[in-house]
Design a protein around this nucleic acid. Structure first.
Lengths: 137, 137
DNA sequence: CATGCGAATGATAACCGCTATCGGAACGGC
DNA sequence: GCCGTTCCGATAGCGGTTATCATTCGCATG
């Protein structure tokens, strides 16, 4: 794998943010430093970097993929209101994995765990909206 | 929600199989009993039935959605070789969920856990291939 | 330092799973 | 039987991603 300037800038941008950007968002970030970059190049390199283990692809059912500069084991929590994705470290995962391996007979090589709910910010916002609504009536 | 003939046949087919079919596969199954059914009807009803809690939509990152007649809590194991999806019951999930809720501040309303690996059948096939290959050389 | 070749790039067309739209049919309360 | 609502089949459209292809780049080697 050649480390081209496009590739290293894409890697750098993903490592700099903790916002789990989509390919499109990475494209915007990268274009600030490399205005003539192609969207195809972004997709290609997100794939290559994932295969190389330098970043993680976060597959979220039903919505566009997101990319993550953290490659250690962790769980994602997605907000159903605003779409934001946060990280949670967890040790239960390894135990669940070995259990699943034993019960199913599969040879497990990866997992995908995501909890979905409403993030603290949106909970606050929702409480605010409710209060205002009650005040009106 | 009206229980039309299309709807009940779609529900029936999904409950009958344990293969976690995709929308396309459901379409094929249903057409045997209802040759003039539209693919749109299948998609629509898979959605309606999911909202009604009668089936589950299984969102698999990167591949088409699959549908599941089992609606109780369980984990999916996907085979990276043949794409097959199996069920695994697990109790750790509830504990992980409450932990994530506490650590992240999110109000969790759902989760998606999928392990990926190679199913026993494909492991056997791979062993067979290896043996043949060794015998050749 | 020049050369050659495989890998990477940019532009864009194509793909695929899914959703929206729309005219018409079916249902069911009255 | 009438009418509003729900649903249907057919098909066009959409959004995210991948494939294609001519061109350029990086880098090992001579």
């Amino acid at each position: 794998m050649r480390m081209t300037s496009q590739r290293s800038i894409i890697l750098d941008e993903i490592r700099k943010t903790h916002a789990h950007p989509t390919a499109d968002e990475v494209y915007v970030l990268v274009r600030r430093r490399l205005p003539r970059v192609s969207l195809a190049t972004v997709y290609r390199n997100l794939d290559v970097l994932t295969r190389a283990g330098l970043i993680r692809t976060v597959e979220l059912g039903g919505c566009p993929r997101r990319y993550d500069g953290r490659v250690d084991d962790h769980i994602h929590v997605r907000c159903l209101e605003c779409g934001r994705v946060d990280d949670v470290a967890d040790a239960l995962l390894a135990r669940a994995r070995s259990r699943v391996e034993k019960v199913s007979g599969y040879s497990i090589s990866g997992h995908h765990l995501e909890f979905a709910g409403v993030c603290p910010d949106c909970q606050r916002r929702a409480r605010g909206r409710r209060r205002r609504k009650n005040a009106e009536s």
